[in-house]
């Protein structure tokens, strides 16, 4: 909108008022420009830091990213050491985490938002869920060591690790699910109730589909965090040198599917990278950088898939 068109709108009277208006308008526009610059700076600081990190990692790690690096087990010789057990471990653990954490988190979020009565108990639960999101991850590791490893006897296994990380990301997913459900307009629910739908029908057919993009955002944040965790996994007893893979879940013999892999020892990428960073000498530093790159790539790919689904679902939403 140009100044002249505003002026000819006709509501402004007198030349003095005109010049006052123009002055204020200019000031408002300057303020806006200042904010845009600040916002741009705020955004770019994060992005530049990330880019610098990526470039630094890539510069020292890229030469190590050969096919052997992905198919070799760890070794005392930096040039022969690879991340096979680490990336397989990371993917297995994160699968268990997603398999347990996502349904539990979404279900809890739905219950708290749609079904739970608003009373003091719900309030207490709400506060605790929000608090849990801020609890340091090592605490989850200690809990898992006492409860899962010693209490339930699940061992220092992929299953325990997956459960631990699922607990860790549960609050993130619950909070995201609730936010997403809250953003669904009430008119949508009322229309469904109006034609006689039950609460579950409303939730299942209308609220949840509309909330899924928001839920997926929570899942992305949760999974990314879980992928990078080291402390709780070291606490429950992740290994540092493991030169074999867990047994395959599918086999040629009856019953074709085996869950033995769930109870195997494991290592994950961040632990492998940490182990290499702390080695004497410089030989292993480029391995650590390369492992960092792979970890970032895995995170990006998993997130990319989730973002793609979110995009498709958002496009389908039409009210």
């Amino acid at each position: 909108m140009s100044i002249t068109s505003t002026l000819t709108d006709g509501r402004v009277a007198g030349r003095a008022a005109d010049s006052e208006f123009v002055r204020r308008l200019k000031r408002r526009r300057t303020n806006e420009t200042v904010f845009i610059c600040l916002g741009l700076a705020a955004t770019s600081i994060g992005l530049i830091a990330l880019a610098a990190l990526m470039i630094d990692l890539a510069a020292s790690g890229y030469p190590r990213l050969t096919a052997d690096f992905f198919t070799n087990f760890p070794s005392r010789r930096a040039g022969q050491a690879g991340i096979l057990s680490a990336w397989v471990g990371s993917l297995l653990v994160i699968s268990v985490t997603a398999f347990i954490g996502v349904p539990l988190g979404v279900a809890a979020g739905i219950y708290l938002e749609e079904y739970a009565p608003k009373n003091i108990w719900t309030n207490i639960i709400e506060i605790n869920v929000s608090n849990l999101a801020g609890v340091p991850s090592i605490v989850f590791g200690l809990l898992a060591l006492g409860l899962f490893v010693y209490g339930f006897g699940t061992g220092r296994s992929i299953f325990t690790a997956g459960l631990t990380l699922a607990l860790l990301i549960l609050p993130i997913i619950i909070v995201a699910t609730r936010e997403a459900i809250r953003a669904v307009p009430w008119s949508l629910r009322e229309a469904a109730y109006g034609v006689g739908a039950t609460k579950w029908q409303v939730t299942q057919d209308h609220v949840l589909p509309a909330a899924v993009p928001g839920v997926l955002t929570g899942v992305i944040i949760g999974i990314s965090r879980a992928l990078g965790e080291t402390a709780p996994l070291v606490t429950i007893g992740a290994l540092s040198f493991i030169a074999f893979l867990p047994p395959s879940p599918v086999s040629a013999d009856f019953p074709f599917i085996s869950f033995a892999w769930l109870f195997e020892g494991f290592t994950v990428l961040p632990i492998q990278a940490f182990n290499w960073v702390s080695r004497p000498g410089d030989d292993f530093q480029s391995n650590a950088a390369a492992a960092g790159l792979v970890l970032m790539a895995i995170t990006l790919v998993l997130n990319g898939v989730a973002i793609y689904f979110r995009y498709r679902l958002r496009k389908k939403l039409q009210w």
């Binding site: 996502v102 057919d205 509309a210 997926l216 899942v219 998993l302 989730a306 498709r312």
Partner: peptide
Amino acid sequence: MRLFKTHGAAGPVATSL
């Protein structure tokens, strides 16, 4: 509006699998 049943939150899980 029944897209939850077809895609939905199972997406990332299916992907990881």
